[in-house]
Design a protein around this nucleic acid. Structure first.
Lengths: 194, 194
DNA sequence: GTCTATACGGAGATAGAC
DNA sequence: GTCTATCTCCGTATAGAC
């Protein structure tokens, strides 16, 4: 049994330091390639100290991902308050790109890591948030073409974040460029160009 | 000719079976999440039998990736025989999308796995092929916007392949849709930045 | 090419003192 | 909240027989 981590504690400073150290390493080596020993070393403590915060590695992973998941939830919630599909898509797009550029490393990890991919399938809240995002972006009963575009976009955003050839692009420029691509893919103009 | 692979053995049937089994598991669990024991079980043999083909796990990984790398090389070579940047980009696009749809699992692995990402940085031939592809798609001394688009595209293609909400889309449709997106991003009509 | 058997290290995890 | 010490299991890898 994999236990639901209804761990709603507010995450003190120690925990936050742990999250940050773990995240750095996850982004570099993947979750499976990162041992608790590595994390402990990164923080300058021992494994046992890490185990004080989480009972298992899996719970640690969930703990690291959760704050990011929360922010995505907020974006979706905000989008739902808007009227009209186009406005909703635009809002998700903006919020997501913002979030993703701001938390580069995190999104790379959450989007790409095999371990987290499994979590996406099995962890109830991740399934839920992922589903809601796709639904908001694609719309109900979307045609294949639309679903492909959405999947393409969600996966595409990580490219510029991870690609070394884009390392020189600063956050603001990146945000603008990715938004541009996102609009092209998900908000095609009806008749003419605007 | 598609260059030498460190290990230029012709890959008999046993080796090919091994590659396929390993690939299936890599795609599911990531390279680090796949033990040689799992691979052996998948093939119905023992670990020692696997070690008959490769001396280390890393060599196995390279062996699995190489055939795919060779096909990418062929695509690039073919593109270089064409005259004009647009024609070259179009050719790479077509070849790559074809290849990627045909070898879904493989591309997901090569594009996404943390272990292979490190290989991309350190393994000479992978560095080379990756660099050549970006150069062909982006052009020499490309501006940031173009580089972002290329990175976005290369990462975006894996989305529809991996996303469960696109599972019902058959290969031909997928190919067409992804090509469409690729042209939008990389071959803008009446290019303002070509 | 495949097997059995085994070496060795490092992984995740626990106990209990400070 | 952090430590030392320790457990167990499984990972990679090797030796040598069939």
């Amino acid at each position: 049994m994999t236990a639901t981590v209804g761990d709603a504690r507010p995450a003190g400073p120690g925990r936050t330091r742990l999250h940050e150290a773990a995240l750095r390493l996850f982004a570099d080596h993947g979750v499976n390639g990162t041992s608790l020993q590595m994390i402990a070393d990164e923080m300058g403590v021992t494994k046992a100290a890490v185990y004080h915060h989480y009972r298992t590695k899996e719970e640690l992973v969930v703990g690291v991902v959760t704050p990011f998941l929360d922010r995505v939830s907020e974006v979706l919630e905000h989008a739902r308050t808007r009227r009209g599909r186009r406005a909703q898509v635009e809002t998700v797009l903006e919020g997501l790109v913002d979030l993703v550029v701001d938390a580069r490393r995190m999104y790379v990890v959450t989007a790409v890591d095999p371990v987290i991919a499994h979590l996406h399938e099995h962890h109830p809240r991740m399934r839920e948030v992922g589903g809601e995002m796709r639904e908001l972006l694609a719309g109900p009963d979307a045609e294949p073409g639309r679903r492909v575009a959405v999947a393409f976009f969600l996966s595409g955003v990580i490219g510029p974040l991870a690609d070394p050839t884009c390392g020189d692009v600063d956050d603001d420029a990146l945000r603008a460029m990715v938004m541009d691509v996102g609009r092209q893919l998900l908000l095609p103009r009806r008749a003419s160009r605007g």
